[in-house]
Write a protein that binds this DNA or RNA. Structure first.
Length: 590
RNA sequence: GGACCGGUAGCUCAGCUGGAUAGAGCAGCUGCCUUCUAAGCAGCAGGUCAUUGGUUCGAAUCCAAUCCGGUUCACCA
């Protein structure tokens, strides 16, 4: 049980014993004491003052004295300022905490809860390479899965690849027209970029054709439909759906190029999946559910044979679930896939890491699944994240302002190399060690930058500022870890006495370390890695102050040396674990 | 137009189940490397928490209205 909860439980119990009022620990508001006051944690008394009709000072005195008498091992002092009861936690409590966890490698992790969660993330299209927005998605999804794993949930990481449809045919057509038989191998271009280039070429050619038609007197609307390259693409989609061999062959070939490229990027950024779904296999799912929905009266069929669901009573609109020609729409596939996932993995919760532009879609999806009575329905959770924007505004592929994932990672790693060389601290590293260090720092900076803000909020990515390695950044935390390891290489804790008192910075560190498990819990329940990022940064900052102020290896006494070594060891462990759930490695030296 | 999301320091963001004088980082300014890594530390300066009203012992936080920005409401995916 963490300290805050102990304070709450003790306070609720004390109020019961003193005044015979029944409160849940949850009813007691406990905050960290503001630095300008004496104490560690503060019980806010106002609500009890009202309830008991007692003066704040009297109540505070009675409660404070009672707490100290009943829990001398937990509390060592108190003071009352206005309606706030500031409690000092006994040094012995923190010392005990430090000693029992310094070498505990699994500190922060929870026992299995028995629940199983699926996290769907990344979900790329096979017509273009990954960009900055995908990076936020990948880092978020991976981290949320890792946080849930650490807090005792079984995890299935999954990815739904959008590998079919008109947009895929566009790159295929463009390659047929303009490719001259080139391949990623023959050109030396990474497969996903290679295919993406043809997607761009399609749009260029299409635009040109539309313009020509418009110039010859056609309306723009008609020209967009009549452009030969578009008609060819639509025919190709029909051919694909009919399974025409040469189209299927081309489709497989080009997709395989993309996957080769994705594999490299995923490997580099550390994304991985337990199960990959391909839309080419799942796009027909859900049809039987349309029948079932009609039978149950959840859906209605209109005269033209299209099938709808009326969600106006739920404050939404009417939504189409099947076209008049009997083909299914996107949401129908999603319903079908939700059912499929359920059959295959039987998870308690299914998290979809998808941008907030699809909020409405997921609201509808969940509602429809609930109305259909699918067992997976209530477990659907849309982890909606905000778009990544540039200082100039949104990224637009048409304007060429899309920040490519591979390029960005390259740039970050390069800057890491440059800065490391400037500082010259690891001149004895082998080339392989250096390469690993640059990747660790560069990716650490990037991941931390994208994960440190609330996922729900849109964020601005400033290429100039984002590559900062000072302050609230991944490299600062990595650096703190490396400094600790440097100390620990010289001497390790021996398990000897750590004395019986704490200096302010020693205590501040202990207090912060003790919060790690509850931070992980909070991050898990809110699906929010930024909680861990912020916590880990603050911990590193506290350690840096401590490190500057107090000598560890040459401490004043043997007790102090042992105490500080244990604190250092525990801090290194928490930093490492905190960063690990963010997908960020920490170096031994940098 | 309906629904949803956001507006906190020059910039990027915390804080939002109501609690003490609203916090970080960057940028700016001062100091600190003969002692464990200065990718650091200590300090200064920087605020009408979009606006107005309400709820109460207490509001950045809750409620209402307004202003500004965004997303969405396709027989697209």
């Amino acid at each position: 049980m963490n300290v805050v909860l102990k304070v709450k439980v003790a306070s609720a119990q004390a109020l019961k014993e003193l005044y015979n009022i029944d409160l849940q620990p949850h009813d007691v508001l406990v905050n960290a004491t503001k630095p300008e006051f004496e104490g560690d944690y503060t019980v806010v008394l106002f609500s009890f003052i009202k309830l008991l009709k007692k003066a704040p000072d009297v109540l505070g005195q009675e409660l404070g004295s009672h707490l100290i008498n009943r829990h001398p091992d937990l509390f060592s002092g108190f003071n009352i300022i206005k309606g706030f009861l500031n409690l000092t936690i006994a040094d012995g409590y923190w010392l005990q905490f430090i000693q029992s966890n310094a070498a505990n490698l699994s500190f922060g992790a929870s026992a299995s809860t028995g629940s199983k969660v699926m996290v769907e993330y990344s979900s790329p299209n096979t017509n273009k390479p990954l960009h900055l927005g995908h990076l936020r998605n990948n880092f978020l999804g991976w981290s949320v899965a890792e946080i849930l794993k650490t807090t005792g949930h079984g995890i299935v990481k999954t990815c739904v690849v959008n590998d079919r449809g008109i947009h895929i045919c566009k790159s295929m057509i463009a390659w047929q027209y303009f490719g001259n038989g080139d391949t990623p191998q023959s050109t030396g271009i990474k497969g996903d970029h290679f295919v993406g280039d043809y997607y761009v070429k399609f749009n260029e050619a299409y635009k040109k054709q539309v313009k020509e038609l418009v110039d010859s007197g056609m309306t723009e609307e008609l020209a967009e439909k009549e452009a030969p390259i578009m008609k060819a693409t639509q025919q190709m989609l029909l051919d694909w759906e009919a399974g025409k061999p040469e189209v299927m062959e081309l489709w497989r070939r080009m997709n395989s190029w993309v996957y080769e490229g994705f594999d490299i990027t995923y490997q580099r950024i550390g994304s991985n999946f337990d199960k990959v779904y391909y839309e080419s296999n799942t796009y027909l799912l859900g049809k039987d559910l349309v029948e079932e929905g009609l039978f149950k009266g959840v859906f209605v069929k209109k005269e033209d044979n299209s099938v709808w669901i009326d969600l106006t009573n739920d404050g939404l609109d009417e939504k189409l679930v099947q076209r008049k020609d009997g083909t299914s729409v996107y949401i129908t596939q999603d319903i079908g896939l939700a059912e499929q996932k359920q059959k295959e993995f039987n998870v308690d919760q299914s998290i979809y890491v998808v941008g907030d532009e699809q909020n409405y879609h997921f609201k509808v999806l969940k509602l429809i699944c609930q109305k259909l009575g699918l067992p997976s329905a209530d477990g659907i959770y849309h982890l909606s994240y905000g778009m990544v924007e540039l200082p100039s505004g949104k990224m637009k592929s048409r304007e060429g302002t899309v920040v490519d994932a591979d390029d960005l990672v390259d740039e970050m790693v390069n800057i890491a190399r440059q800065k490391t060389e400037e500082l010259g601290k690891v001149k004895d590293f082998s080339p392989a060690e250096l390469a690993e260090l640059y990747a660790t720092i560069g990716l650490g900076a990037l991941k931390f930058f994208l994960l440190r803000v609330d996922p729900r909020k849109k964020m601005i990515f400033n290429p100039e500022e984002s590559i900062d390695f000072h302050g609230f950044t991944g490299p600062f935390i990595q650096y703190t870890h490396a400094r600790i390891k440097s100390v620990l290489r010289k001497s390790m804790p021996e398990g000897s006495s750590i004395g019986n008192s704490l200096l302010p910075l020693e205590k501040a560190l202990a207090i912060e370390l003790e919060q790690f498990p509850s931070v992980l819990q909070e991050a898990a329940s809110e699906h929010d890695p930024s909680k861990v990022a912020i916590y880990t940064f603050n911990l590193a900052k506290t350690f840096s102050s401590f490190y500057t102020e107090h000598s560890i290896g040459n401490a004043e006494t043997a007790d102090k040396k042992e105490l500080r070594l244990q604190l250092a060891q525990l801090t290194a462990g928490v930093i490492k674990k905190g960063m690990a759930v963010l997908g960020i490695k920490v170096p031994e030296r940098m």
